[in-house]
Simulated scan of single mutants.
Amino acid sequence: MTVRLRAHHLLCLLTYVGKGYSPAFTANYDKVVGRLGEGEAVLIVSGPDDICAPMLDEPEPHCLREGAAERDGLAARDVGALLGRPVQAGDRLALDPASLARMRTAFSSGQTRRACSGCEWSGLCGAVAAGGFHDTRL
């Protein structure tokens, strides 16, 4: 199987420590991270993905707002520059330990954090990165 991810979730995964918008969201996120930890590949998608799924039943899911799409564009550019190739919907990626380490180094240095500007989770993610990514689930 393949985990469907929007581009900015490539960054969110780096600092995920089990906190989220709701218990259902966190439980689902844990399942997605488990699948990735077992070696499932990533398929980049445009719009809501496997992480967003529990949010889509809300009256106005933030996953559908323009800001989320803007974050995707910024993350795709930054991660693509890091990987040396474009990252866009339809691309498949493997998140092996070496690529995760490289992505975390870039995240810590700020190289791939433009998509995080204005995100309500930015402070937590910054603290996780500053702490060496301890207790992350992936």
Rank of each mutant, 00 (worst) to 15 (best):
A106Q: 04
T105P: 10
V3W: 03
S46M: 13
H9K: 09
P48W: 05
A115R: 05
F107I: 08
G110N: 00
L82G: 00
V17L: 07
G39W: 00
L36C: 06
A53W: 12
L11T: 02
S22C: 12
C12I: 00
G126Y: 01
G123I: 08
C116M: 05
G37P: 05
G47N: 01
E60Y: 01
A101M: 12
R114H: 11
D49E: 14
P48E: 07
S109E: 15
A7M: 10
S108E: 07
R77S: 09
G132T: 00
T112E: 00
G67K: 15
R4D: 01
V3I: 05
E60L: 03
A106T: 08
R113P: 00
E40R: 03
D50C: 06
Q111H: 05
P48I: 04
I51Y: 07
P54G: 07
D96P: 06
H9E: 11
T2S: 11
C119S: 03
G34Y: 05
L10Y: 06
E66L: 09
A98H: 09
E120D: 07
D49W: 10
E38L: 11
G90W: 06
C63P: 10
R4E: 10
D57L: 04
C63Q: 11
A76Q: 02
E66T: 12
W121A: 03
C12A: 11
G67V: 14
A76V: 06
T136G: 03
A130E: 11
A69N: 06
H8D: 07
G37L: 11
A94N: 06
D91Q: 05
C52G: 14
A98Y: 03
V45A: 12
T112W: 00
Y16H: 13
L93K: 06
Q88A: 11
L56T: 12
D57Y: 06
A115Y: 05
R92E: 08
D91S: 01
T112C: 02
S122E: 15
N28Y: 08
R113F: 04
A106I: 02
R92M: 03
A106L: 14
P23I: 03
A115S: 13
G110I: 01
A89W: 02
F107L: 13
D30E: 13
V79N: 03
A130V: 02
G123K: 11
I44W: 10
A41Q: 11
T136A: 09
L36E: 00
M103S: 15
C63N: 14
G126V: 04
A130D: 05
S108H: 04
P23E: 04
P97M: 01
A41C: 08
D49C: 09
G132Y: 06
T26D: 15
M55F: 12
